[in-house]
Design a binder for these strands. Structure first.
Length: 483
RNA sequence: GGGGCCGUGGGGUAGCUUGGUCUAUCCUCCCGGCUUGGGGUGCCGGAGACCCGGGUUCAAAUCCCGGCGGCCCCA
């Protein structure tokens, strides 16, 4: 039955499909006259808010407090951590003037908030009793992207940037935080029905200033990967630059260990891309602004009032906590079907004279585009069951897409074939040397995502050799074309 | 950094090579009316565009120069 769902354009011309859908489905308007800065439209924003609501609840569950820092950072603060500034200075927006006068100390628009937050952390964190210290914010950040911008994916204003920042009394406790971040991320991914992989980034591609960086990637329909989450362990790098110290039980002064965890509206891009099809968006019921749309099918001269019937069902669903909308527009039902399919509403209920007579309703699933007739009396249960089935189907379909695109190879030639063919992720033995890693990136015209995480899964099997230098391989390295 | 392409109603486009019946094509969206209603009803009517500046010419959407904006490829 899934064969009924067409995903031709989606898979063969993903870029075009994506750009069209961003506007036709009402996610964003790209016509704002600044490159890389787009407007959130009401429908898209509602979806994003539902994703954020889940993130807020996870943050609360795990004891993070929400804060809001200013968007402007003085040049002097920005420059305190050497690697960090080197990594970002090429892409920050500067504020150099106020009115007609040049500023004494120039300001940057935050590309991320480490340098805004950490001088304050050093004031706030005094004692071991203050640790662990866990805060987060969801704000807009700015990066002057020089590559091609793409809505939600590569933008100059990230308008929904999530960043959690924590401070700990030891490396071990910071590691526990990374584990917690991964658990939060996993919950979120399940909520979105989005399967992913986690890699430890190679040293040359760490977050600027980090001890190590983890990236969570998803597989897009065209075989390229999209990073949708990152976790960094900073060790004491920033603490030393910003003098964030606490007093131990013994009265000593120690630098804190820090971590960050980041996500953005790329989460929505992933959901759109991974679950969509040729008819448009397919939203998981967990985040759909409208979970059920009811389309009344009137018949001329029929005495039955299908509208009243539809409204009654709507009330019932609403009482059960389901987000429902009755489409009473004066247009043909077929037109409504297309409209709501484009917008990805997970379930459609059709009610016409036939259903009213038999005390039934037709339930249509968005993910499979199949229909089923159900008894009016059990409609709430049927909808709930359908939601569960949709979540399962979306997840397993996406999981198959991801797994089909991961290929383990041993030579550069094999790896090249994968990228020529259908793309995806290549896993290849690697000695661990930067030189060999960069060489493979160049030869494959792909990026090294890193090594599988947790570390135990990154070891190369016995006897495998690095295809570049021929030495014994220590790791499995992942390569992909990325967004 | 190097090379290429392109700016036409809200969106997508035709026209440009060879200047003139361009009073600018078609689809979509939008507005009004009738009709219709279990997968994009049909018909009638309406609104809406040649990126900006300069030049060539009797005549420029079309050719030339400059500006601004966008896209693609390579390093």
């Amino acid at each position: 039955m899934a064969g009924k769902v067409k995903r031709k354009k989606w898979s063969e011309n993903f870029s075009e499909w994506y750009n069209e859908l961003i506007e036709t489905a009402g996610i964003q308007d790209k016509r704002y006259p600044v490159k890389g800065m787009n407007i959130w439209l009401p429908y898209g924003l509602k979806i994003m808010r539902n994703i954020e609501r889940f993130i807020h609840s996870e943050m609360e569950r795990t004891g993070h407090d929400e804060v809001l820092f200013p968007a402007l950072i003085p040049e002097t603060e920005f420059q305190k951590e050497a690697e960090h500034i080197a990594g970002f200075e090429g892409e920050v927006f500067w504020v150099t003037h106020a009115g007609h006068d040049p500023l004494d100390i120039r300001l940057i628009l935050r590309p991320t908030s480490e340098t805004a937050m950490y001088s304050m952390f050093s004031l706030w964190i005094r004692s071991h009793a203050d640790l662990p210290f866990k805060v987060y914010q969801m704000v807009n950040t700015y990066r002057y992207e020089t590559k091609h911008t793409r809505p939600l994916i590569r933008v100059r204003e990230i308008s929904r940037f999530f960043e959690a920042h924590t401070a700990h009394d030891s490396f071990e406790d910071a590691e526990r935080q990374i584990t917690e971040d991964l658990e939060i991320f996993d919950n979120l991914a399940k909520f979105l029905a989005v399967p992913y992989i986690v890699s430890k980034r190679p040293d040359w591609d760490k977050f600027p200033g980090a001890y190590y960086s983890l990236g969570a990637e998803v597989m897009m329909p065209d075989g390229r990967t999209l990073q949708i989450g990152t976790m960094h362990n900073y060790r004491q790098n920033f603490a030393k630059a910003y003098n964030i110290q606490y007093e131990t039980e013994e009265g000593e002064h120690e630098y804190v260990h820090q971590t960050t965890f980041g996500m953005s509206e790329r989460l929505l891009a992933a959901v759109m891309a991974i679950h969509g099809d040729d008819s448009g968006l397919v939203l998981p019921p967990t985040i759909a602004p409208i979970q059920v749309v009811i389309v009344p099918i009137p018949k001329k001269d029929a005495e039955a009032d299908v509208f009243a019937y539809a409204r009654k069902i709507a009330d019932e669903l609403r009482t059960a906590g389901i987000r429902v909308h009755v489409d009473e527009r004066d247009i043909r039902p077929g037109r409504k079907y297309y409209d709501w399919e484009l917008k990805g509403v997970p379930v459609r209920i059709e009610v016409g004279p036939r259903d009213l007579e038999g005390n039934k309703a037709v339930i249509a699933r968005r993910d499979t585009l199949t229909k089923e007739v159900v008894e009016r009396a059990v409609i709430v249960d049927a909808i709930r069951r359908t939601f569960d089935e949709i979540m399962e189907n979306l997840y397993s379909r996406a999981k198959a897409l991801l797994e089909d695109h991961i290929k383990r190879v041993e030579t550069i030639e094999e790896a090249k074939e994968v990228f020529e063919d259908r793309r995806g992720i290549v896993e290849i033995p690697w000695c661990g040397e930067e030189e060999c890693g960069l060489r493979m990136e160049e030869e494959l015209d792909a990026k090294m995502l890193g090594t599988p995480y947790p570390d135990e899964t990154a070891k190369a099997p016995e006897g495998k050799r690095c295809p570049v230098c021929g030495r014994e391989a220590k790791f499995i390295a992942r390569f992909a074309r990325t967004y």
